[in-house]
Structure formats: C-alpha cells, structure tokens
Design a protein around this nucleic acid. Structure first.
Lengths: 331, 331
DNA sequence: CCTCGGCGCTAGCACGTGCAAGCGACCAGG
DNA sequence: CCTGGTCGCTTGCACGTGCTAGCGCCGAGG
C-alpha cells in the first residue's frame, strides 16, 4: 500500500509502476485538457497514484510553475479573541476551492522574527489593516506585488473589518437609547493606532450625521487614566460611551463602577468585536458582532481576484455587522 | 539596484554579472567550508548579491535539499488569548538562529480546511497537546515522522503548558489561604477535553498530596449549569474553586455573584492562563501566569532536537509558572 | 496501395539550487 | 626540467514537476 519506508512517492514511481511515461501521469494528475488521455489510462493512473499514496511535491510544483499558490494572511496582534479563527477557517475553505492555501502569521510588531513572506513567497499578502511604508517596502523587496489592502485602494471598498458599519451602529444604538452626549474610549497602544483611528473617524462621522455634539475622546489604558476619563465624561454630562473595543469597554465599566457609578444608569457603554468575555462581564457588555465567516469569504475573494487577475463577480458582500444588546446599555 | 521589473534574481544572475560560475556563488552564499574561496571573490559575490537584491528561491532550495526547513506549530482553538503570540514569537526567534522557520496554524476542529502539513511538508510538527490517532495517521500519510509531542514521550518531560505546575499552584494557593474543601470548574467543550483532563488530573494529584478531601468537579459552561455548580459547591461546604481556566473562573464568579454570594468571602476562585481579561473582571481574577516566552524557547528546542537529530543540551527548562494573586482569592 | 490526419502517448527541457567531481594554474622539491 | 600537491574555480548532475514538441500507429479517403 504505502511507499517503502522513508522514500517519497513521485510521479515517476507511479509511471514506472504502470509502464507509462511520467508525462502521461502528469497530464492525468493535473487534469490537463490540452492533452487527450484515454479513459482507461486515466483510471489506471488515478488508481495507482492512490494505491501508492502519491502526493505531489509542493516545492517542486512551486519551482516549476513559478507560483506558490499560497496566500499569506497577516493577523494583527490585537486581542480580537479567537473568533478570528472562524474567519481564517472560512477563508481557507474558499481559497482551497481554487487550489490556493492560506497561511497566517500573527504580526508581533515589537518582535524581530522574520516575516513569512520572505520565505514562503506567497502570491498574495492580505492584511486586516493597511500596511505601513516599511512593510510595503519589505514586501516589494521580496518581489511581492499583490498586497491587500493595497496602497491603491486605500480602504477596501466593502469595509472588511466593519470599520465604518461597526462604529456607526454603536453610535446609533446609544442614540436610540436616548443618549445625546457621547464619549469615545480609545487606547493609546501604538500597535492598535491605525484601527483605533479608523473606528474613531467612523464614529465621528456617525455622530456628525446624526447632528449630535462632538465625541469626547479619552484613553482608558491604565486604571488611573480610565478613572480620569470617566470623571471627565460625567463632568461633561456624557451619558453614553462608544468604546474602541470590548477591552476598552471593560476598562471603562470597571473604572466607573469602582468610582461608585452605575452602569448603564449613569454611563452606558458599548464595546466592539463581541469578544467572548463581553457576555461574561458584570455587567455584560453590549457590543458589535462581526460576521467573521463572511469576512473570511470576502478576504478570500479579494485574494483570488488579485492572484488570478480575473475580476471574479463580487457577489454581494455579506459581511453583516450587528449590535448585540446587553446589560451595559440596557437597564 | 533592484532587478528588472518582474523578474526574479537568481544565483546565476549574480554569477553572470561577475563573470564567475554559478557554483562559486553558491559556495559563497552557503558558506560552504568544503570548498575554499578566496577572500576577494567572496566579498565580490556578497556585494553583488546584495546589490542585485538576490533572494534564494525557497522552493528550489527545499527541492534540492529535500527538507523544507519549516516547523509547523499547531495552535489549538482554545481561547488562550493573545499571549500565545509571545510564545510563537520567541519560538520563531530560536528557530531562525538555526535556519528554520516557524509556521503556525490554528486548528479548527470542526472545520475541514486542509491541514498545512499536507502542502508545506514541514520537517517537524509541534503541538501544544498530544495529537489524536486520526491526526497522527494523516501526518504519517504525508511522510511526516517528527511529531511533538510524539506518541513516544506521552507528555513532554518538562511539562510545556504547565500541565502539572499550574494546577498544583492553584491548589496550593487556595490551601495557603485556608481553603480545605475545593471544587474544580471544568468545561464540557469537547475540543478542550484533553487539556481539561490533564489539568484536572494534576489538580487531583496536588489535592491528594496535601491530604485534602477529593475535588468536587462541575461544569460551568452555560449560566444555568454554572448556577447549579455554585449551588452544589456551597451545599458541600466548598469554599475554594480551582477553575480550568480564566473563562471557567469568570463563569463561576458570575454565577456566584448573580446568586447573591460574595467572592471571595463565600467562594474563592482561581483561574488559569492569566488571560488579559482576568485583571479587568469584577472582581479581578487570581490566575496562573504562564511564561510564554520560556515555553516558546522550549518548544523550539524540542523541534530543533527532532529536526537535526543531535540532542542539544536541554539547558534547564526556564518555563516559570507563577500565581498572580487578585481579588477573587484575596479579601 | 499510398497518403494524410488525428489520437494517444513519450522524449525532453526548464525551473533554481546544493554539491560531488574534476580541471587548470601555480609553486615547491628533486 | 619534470613531478606532485594544493588552491581556486568550473562543469555538470540531481531534486520532482509542468508542459511543449514530436513520434508511432491506425483508420479513412483517394
């Protein structure tokens, strides 16, 4: 059944075993339509390949064809929780259907580990947030040209990470609950800066379009700054806080409760990302649920589009972001 | 400076540009000691390679040398939080020093995405928990023989994930605080079963060695089962709960507080993994901090050992697990 | 019977690299 | 002047695959 111990089964082994040429085997296994192969031969080859446990040598394929059929997904070091794996799973699936494979790397900004694009030379590199100039330069230096989101399309049109929809929903949720004066809980963590900025901007737009007074922005990283932030907000008659994510929301709530205030009576707070801990918190935290599966499919479509060139019907983005209402905004 | 647009710079390009043979270039770039190369030539080659921006073609190297120099780390889909990236980063670093690279894949058990070992053919596959029979069979089918933890060494001697130290520390921590009758908060999530079992076993051993009454084990997955668990524990005069992880701890605390009890006065709870949210919870959750950096170095050592064959001095495992005492166990 | 076309298959090159074997030049010793 | 050895470099093969060009055979048409 299996091969002799330790040796790899090659297409040549299959050919030899059948008394055919290696080319024929290659044609069958690749399903080449250029070349006509009789039904009988095709079946024999497939059966023998299966019997011997033939696996194409990826490195040889990549060498010959010049492309690795790999897509590298750079995952930021955010505490986005494990829901991201659902996104990865879905994207992998969609890519596999086209013969591509997904490799992920969590990018540790402070670290110096060599980025994977240097040695996997993937066809496409996909990120959740735009890459900075240094990263772009490094990729170009490795001959990688297909990058998403590219410098061209500054923000991917369909808004992959709910950069606009999420904050808008947060603001609208608080507004419907009667909150007019809103604060924004940010973090000063530099590695999050781009995403914080994106979400803050989106929240500002939502506030403006509703005709509400401008957001009062504060950082809530450490307990003391969070306490100060809560103090400032209440001083300014803020009654609702849009948090950058569930972590910021938790910090805000913690500081408010510790200062003797009631959540949501004195201060309503809504987070973002629907981290699993949001539901466990006391009080449980209202949040924005992101459709990670849809996001994964979307990213895969983008990647395939870039890889193959053909535009692929962008069959309606189905990444549905939604509010999950919990105790931190409901009485 | 850089290459002509779109074309890859090969060792042959460097050689041609200098009027040397490709072999010479290869010897210099590989630092081969078998072959003597004059200092002058060596410098010229290195300079020209740098000038042209030469990058070895990984696929070609892998093909020729027969090994991919890749280590695949399978990360379980646990909500272990993002600290795991520190572990990955550290392991990458240690592996790079030996010319190996680390690729990670979060294993989504319910998913059907093809495992990466099928197409990267890594030299070693490393996991946090032992692999099951199906996975082992699949790997062997792809010709992967070096697997950690292997079926041979059932549990890696130095206890990578704090499988023994962590639970022992939890029990001892509660015991020092005067708790004699202890409960164990588990989860019935099947994908966590192996780790839960490991930690439960370790906790039982610790309890036994201290001469305490046996652990009362309950699941705390859903709010109602958690409520029942808390009820059972208090009924049995349990005063301290060892939680499988911080998530279980949070669920336990939530249920206790909701039932009108005080934490830690009525029930002290200690979690595991020191998830970032443990410190934010109300009350903040005592936990076990794992030395992820040390764990990463350790895993890298194990992988190199398996890859190269030479035993590599296991220079003292420095993975230090420690208790982080917080409000959920301190008055 | 000869020719011609198509079907089914094969010979062989190329991809970029690592490395074994070999080859010319130079130098010292006899 | 010849010989043997070493240094520095080159020729060339192998890795496993994708795919182009071509080859033999067989049946049909003239």
């Amino acid at each position: 059944m299996a091969a002799k111990a330790g040796k790899r089964v090659t297409a040549a082994d299959v050919a030899r075993s059948l008394g055919l040429s290696r080319a024929t085997v290659g044609f069958v296994l690749n399903g080449t339509t250029e070349q006509r192969i009789s039904e009988a031969t095709r079946d024999r080859v497939l059966a023998e390949a299966a019997r011997l446990g033939y696996r194409p040598h990826t490195a040889a394929q990549a060498l010959r064809r010049g492309s690795s059929k790999l897509v590298l997904l750079i995952i930021p070091d955010w505490p986005v929780g494990f829901s991201i794996s659902e996104c990865v799973e879905e994207a992998s699936h969609a890519l596999e259907a086209e013969g591509y494979s997904l490799v992920t790397q969590t990018h540790h900004p402070v670290g110096t580990a060599r980025p994977l694009w240097e040695l996997l030379d993937p066809e496409v590199v996909v990120g959740f947030a735009p890459f900075n100039q240094d990263e772009l330069a490094a990729m170009r230096g490795c001959g990688i040209t297909k990058i998403i989101p590219g410098p061209g399309h500054s923000a991917s049109p369909p808004d992959p990470l709910g950069l606009h929809d999420g904050p808008r929903l947060q603001v609208e949720h608080l507004h419907t609950r009667g909150h007019e004066r809103l604060g924004f809980a940010a973090t000063s963590d530099p590695r999050l800066s781009t995403l914080v900025e994106s979400r803050l901007t989106a929240a500002r737009e939502a506030v403006a379009s509703l005709g509400l007074p401008p957001l009062v922005v504060r950082s809530v990283d450490a307990p003391d700054t969070a306490g100060q932030a809560v103090h400032d907000w209440l001083q300014a008659n803020i009654t609702g806080v849009v948090a950058y994510n569930d972590d910021s929301a938790a910090r805000t709530i913690r500081a408010a409760v510790r200062a003797g205030h009631e959540v949501p009576a004195d201060l309503a707070v809504i987070g973002h990302d629907d981290n699993p801990y949001a539901a466990l918190f006391l009080p449980s935290i209202s949040s924005i649920r992101i459709d990670y599966a849809g996001l994964g499919r979307h990213l895969a479509t983008l990647a395939l589009q870039a890889a193959t060139g053909r535009p692929l019907p962008t069959d309606g983005v189905d990444a549905a972001t939604a509010v999950v209402a919990r105790e931190s905004t409901e009485s």
